[in-house]
Design a protein around this nucleic acid. Structure first.
Length: 462
DNA sequence: CGGCTTTGACCGGCGC
DNA sequence: GCGCCGGTCAAAGCCG
């Protein structure tokens, strides 16, 4: 663990600028050696002019100084977070290395799941065991695979709810096989999808009108509470879906304490009503993440959009962001899938635990021309780069072919992905027509106010 | 006036 | 058992 000393050094380094902050009153008179460029600039300005600057100039310089210090602190914080992630991943890896290869529940696996586990290799199984939720899902893997295919066949937007529901049904039917997993069943049912998005307002477009906040992720939400959670001075708002009658879906919205431009939205529950087209891109992406998580198809705790070994999830995630990162955690209460849309595109740091077959490049699924792209007020894809040039695509064919041949689980996932895209042409065309409807002014949420032209709803995908 | 937000109170889970 | 904390409730007030 050679990160520990460097982490400590980072933390020590981080304290210095904040210490200098406390001496703000003396700064102009006695610039500290530890001070940042802003202070240097200030002292130079004073020295060069030889006369005291006017008040406006002083304030401007102080502001500049504060900004630079803020940037440095942010950079340090990011470094600390990266180190933390590396350490966590290393712990996970060590646990994977030392984890016993079987659990009581796995003994009850049916043939399908056994085959799948054998095919997909040990790391996959071990990661599931570590994630705990995997113990639940691996038992029912054979069923969830069918469910997945069935659900993908439908072009139904609120698939998250349905998949969850189907999974829960199968969990229930298998309770006799693994009664010890009742707690896991509950956690499966309570799985959450959390989205971190950096934006003017957020990926879930928030619009402030007077005292009201409109949340335009396609659904209508009614705020029912607000609370300041411990460890984050920013209040957490609680919303309930008000589109359907007694729809149980809830979401929490909270600004990130470390970076207030980042908005964390957590979804929980199943919609009991059809979703409007505007809500589908997000719903399908979050559901894909949750589905992959619950079905145990994900083999790593951290998955990037661009190099995932779960192509279906990768492609779904790409509908939100080409550079999104998904992390999977399982705390005491419920498993949580976090889609981080704030990560820079160069996210190689997040790839440590993908197994050999995960070196497949991104499948060239038709995501960049996604119909949702054209949806009004949903310009998430305006900055999506073309990841693969045509000549790279040609070389890719061989690589992909080989990968598919060698990895049956990959083949199954790819099949599912293709099925989802071609499975129900009629419904697909209906969906597309709805999309075009929506982009031409059709608004399923008539109560949602029109987006003013001067306030573009673009999400900043870094 | 209906629907929504605000906000303090209440409840239940969890750790000590 | 107690206190903390997150989540929810519901009355009051606000807004269109």
């Amino acid at each position: 663990m050679e990160e520990k000393p460097s982490l400590k050094k980072l933390l020590d380094d981080e304290e210095r600028p904040s210490d200098s902050n406390t001496n703000t009153g003396n700064r102009t008179d006695e610039p500290s050696l530890h001070n940042t460029m802003g202070s240097t600039l200030l002292s130079l300005s004073l020295n060069n002019s030889g006369q005291p600057l006017n008040q406006m100039g002083m304030l401007r310089i102080k502001l500049e100084e504060a900004k630079k210090e803020n940037e440095i602190l942010k950079a340090m914080l990011n470094q600390v977070n990266e180190h933390l992630a590396v350490l966590q991943n290393r712990i996970l890896f060590e646990m994977q290395q030392h984890q016993p290869s079987s659990s009581p529940c796995n003994n009850n696996n049916n043939h399908d799941s056994k085959e799948k586990i054998q095919d997909s290799g040990k790391p996959m199984l071990q990661t599931r065991q570590f994630l705990n939720i995997g113990e639940c899902s691996s038992v029912f893997e054979g069923n969830t695979e069918k469910i997945e295919k069935k659900m993908l066949g439908r072009n139904f937007a609120c698939d998250k709810n349905n998949v969850e529901g189907e999974i829960n049904k199968n969990i229930t039917s298998n309770e006799a096989k693994c009664t010890e997993d009742q707690a896991s069943e509950v956690t499966c049912r309570r799985a959450k999808v959390s989205i971190r998005a950096r934006s003017d307002f957020s990926l879930i477009q928030h619009k402030t009108i007077g005292k009201h906040i409109e949340i335009g992720d396609g659904c209508q939400w009614r705020k029912y509470g607000q609370k300041t959670a411990k460890g984050n001075p920013c209040p957490r708002a609680y919303y309930r879906c008000s589109m359907g009658t007694a729809c149980p879906v809830r979401k929490q919205v909270q600004r990130c304490f470390k970076d207030e431009t980042v908005l964390i939205t957590t979804y929980e529950g199943n919609h009991n009503h059809p979703l409007p087209p505007a809500a589908r891109p997000l719903a399908s992406s979050t559901s894909a993440a949750l589905n992959m998580f619950l079905s145990g198809s994900l083999t790593s705790s951290v998955v990037s959009t661009t190099q995932s070994n779960a192509p279906l999830f990768s492609s779904s995630l790409s509908t939100i962001s080409p550079t999104a990162i998904a992390t999977f955690s399982h705390n005491a209460t419920c498993p949580t899938v976090t889609l981080d849309l704030t990560q820079p595109s160069n996210n190689n740091n997040y790839l440590q635990f993908q197994r050999a077959t995960t070196q497949h490049p991104l499948f060239p699924l038709p995501l960049h021309g996604h119909p949702h792209n054209s949806h009004e007020g949903f310009h998430l894809f305006s900055k999506v780069p073309t990841l693969l040039t045509p000549d790279k695509n040609l070389a890719l064919v061989d690589v992909v072919s080989e990968a598919i041949t060698k990895d049956p689980s990959l083949k199954a996932a790819l099949f599912s992905a293709i099925s989802s895209l071609t499975g129900d042409p009629q419904k697909n065309s209906n969906n597309h027509s709805q999309q075009s409807k929506s982009s031409s002014g059709y608004d399923p949420c008539s109560k949602m106010p029109a987006i003013p032209p001067h306030q573009p709803y673009t999400t900043e995908l870094i």
